[in-house]
C-alpha cells in the first residue's frame, strides 16, 4: 500500500499530463468542437509528424535558433559588461540609472515594430529584439552579484596588490557567476519570446513566421504543432543553461548558504 502511494506520488506529474490530454480529447469529441477552433491531441500529433517531415522545417528551426542565441549572446556580453561597470562605479551607476529604470519599465515588446523599421525584416531586427528582452535579468543579476562580492575577499586581493583586471577576472566575475547564470536562465526564455515576436512582425522565415502562416491557412492543428516545437526548443535551451549553471558553479552548490561569499 505504501509502495503504491510512493509510485503514485512519483508518477503524479506524468499522470496529470495524460489526464489533461484525455480530458481535452473527450471535451472535443463530446461537445463536437470544430477542429478549426481546437483540434484534438491526436490530430496535433499527426500534424507534428507531418511538420517534421516537411523539408524546410529545420531551416525555420535554425533561423529561430540563430536569432534566439544571437540575441542571448549579445545580452550576455552587454548585460555582464554594463552590470559590472555599474556595480563598480557609483558615478556611472547614478548617471545611467534613469535609462536602466526606463528599459526595465518600457513594455519592450511594443518596441518590436520600431526595431523592424530600424534593422529591417532580416535576422538583425529579431536578434536585437531577443537581446533587448533578455538583457535586463542578466544585467541586474550581474549588478547584484558584483555588488555582493565579499569584502573580505576583496581585501585579500588588495593586500596582494591586484590590479583591476585580476580583481575582475579572478574574483568578481567568479563570485557573481551564480547570480549571472540565474539571470541567464530567465534571459534565455525571454530571448526565445523576443525572436518569435520579431518573426510575428515581419520577415518570411522562422518558426514564429511559420505560426502566422499556418494561422492564415487555417491549419490550426499545424499551428499547435509549431507551438509544440517551439516549446521543445525552449525546454532544450533552458536545460542547457541550467546545466551550464550547475557545472560552472559547482563550488557554490557545494558550500552551505552561511559560508557563501
Amino acid at each position: 500500500m505504501k509502495a503504491a502511494r510512493r509510485w503514485l506520488f512519483r508518477l503524479l506529474p506524468l499522470l496529470m499530463v495524460v489526464l489533461f490530454f484525455a480530458a481535452w480529447e473527450g471535451y472535443v469529441v463530446f461537445f463536437k468542437v470544430s477542429a478549426f477552433i481546437l483540434p484534438p491531441p491526436d490530430r496535433i500529433v499527426t500534424a507534428m509528424v507531418r511538420l517534421l517531415q516537411q523539408r524546410n522545417v529545420f531551416m525555420h528551426v535554425r533561423v529561430t535558433l540563430v536569432e534566439t542565441l544571437g540575441g542571448f549572446g549579445a545580452a550576455i556580453v552587454t548585460g555582464v559588461a554594463l552590470g559590472t561597470v555599474m556595480a563598480k562605479s557609483p558615478w556611472i551607476e547614478r548617471a545611467l540609472r534613469p535609462f536602466v529604470v526606463a528599459t526595465q519599465i518600457i513594455p519592450k515588446v511594443a518596441l518590436a515594430p520600431l526595431f523592424i523599421l530600424w534593422f529591417g525584416f532580416g535576422l538583425e531586427s529579431k536578434i536585437v529584439i531577443a537581446a533587448v528582452l533578455s538583457f535586463f535579468p542578466i544585467f541586474s543579476n550581474t549588478f547584484i552579484g558584483v555588488r555582493s562580492v565579499d569584502r573580505g575577499l576583496r581585501e585579500v586581493m588588495t593586500t596582494m596588490n591586484a590590479g583591476a583586471w585580476p580583481i575582475f577576472w579572478l574574483l568578481e566575475i567568479r563570485a557573481a557567476m551564480p547570480f549571472i547564470l540565474t539571470g541567464m536562465e530567465v534571459g534565455i526564455v525571454l530571448a526565445i519570446i523576443g525572436a518569435i515576436v520579431g518573426e510575428f512582425m515581419g520577415g518570411s522565415v522562422g518558426l514564429g513566421n511559420l505560426a502566422i502562416l499556418t494561422l492564415q491557412e487555417m491549419q490550426v492543428d499545424k499551428l499547435f504543432a509549431v507551438v509544440l516545437l517551439l516549446t521543445l526548443i525552449g525546454v532544450v535551451l533552458y536545460i542547457g543553461v541550467s546545466m551550464l549553471r550547475r557545472w560552472l558553479t559547482a563550488w557554490h552548490e557545494a558550500i552551505g548558504a552561511d559560508e557563501r561569499p
Binding site: 585579500v156 596582494m160 579572478l170 557567476m177 563550488w251 557554490h252 559560508e259
Partner: peptide
C-alpha cells in the same frame, strides 16, 4: 596577511588559492 577568517576563494582549489599571489 593572514586574517582571522581563512578568506579562501571557494571556486579555487587549495592549490590555486595558495598560488594566488604568484598568479598575480
Amino acid at each position: 596577511v593572514v586574517f582571522q577568517e581563512p578568506r579562501l576563494f571557494p571556486w579555487f582549489t587549495i592549490e590555486d588559492n595558495v598560488a594566488l599571489p604568484l598568479r598575480l
